[in-house]
Amino acid sequence: MFLAPAAIIMALCLLYPLGYMVWGSFRDWNPSQTIGEAEFVGFKNYITLFYDPAFRESLGVTLTFATVVVAAELVIGVGLALLLDRNIRGMSILRTLFILPMMIAPVVVGLMWRYMYHPTVGTFNKFLKSWGFEGIDWLGQHALMSAIIADIWQWTPFIFILSLAALQSLPRSALEAARIDGATAWQQIIHIKLPLMMPVLIVTALLRLIDAFKVLEVILVMTEGGPGLSTEIVALRISRTATEFRELGVAAAMSNYLLILLLILTVAMFAITRLQEARAARLARQIQEEG
């Protein structure tokens, strides 16, 4: 009985719309029609999209963006966590300041970076010029890189905080033992800390990867997908197809492609985690039997 409101809302506002979307993706549908009036076209939307170079490009952009962002954030975030895992004064203040970027609205983040990247007014180019360098065309030629930098700024703290929490919950005894056996700092990191953090790191990476596919507002405000299609990620393309080109059917088909892609990624990550857990459990059992 307590569950009923939650179940009803979820069914009505998540499951039903998703089903509706799948249904709509088989139709030639524009916003002024109801779904019943739209013509049924079978798989036409999916096939058109599959051969559509613009869609392929934005898929490529999305994949590049997501992989680069997650990889860079993992390296920087975990690196910082390993470096800052010390008993120092003011750690909590540091963490507080680090969370700020992710709490602020993506729209505002986009706004800040658009200002800083501005070719004449922006902070970066002014700085470069005051040191006698050429200004860089941040949002022109290097738009994708600029978007990646902004995202790294916003989300590295997420990985940092999670890996710091993981580090601090590691069993002290293992580290003590390693230190007594004379392991160097590097050996400790590579052979003990990283393997023990692995489960958390995988989940974190998965969450970030999923979120990286959802990034839309920052890029929308910064570049509006341009120049050309160079930063038009799939999420942005969906919303433009729906609102500017008024082709809801195609947008729905696109959403389905994105959803399937994400589903595959999630399931793959889940499978990997399970496999690793199984292997770890087997190892533990072997050690017990031997000992």
């Binding site: 709509g24 959403s255 994400l262």
Partner: peptide, 22 residues
């Protein structure tokens, strides 16, 4: 995890359609 996986952009089309028509 599944719900977190669904990007808002994916919900855009059905929600727009449903909220306006159904």
């Amino acid at each position: 995890l599944m719900v977190r996986m669904v990007p808002p952009a994916v919900l855009l089309v059905p929600v727009f359609g449903l909220w306006n028509n159904e």
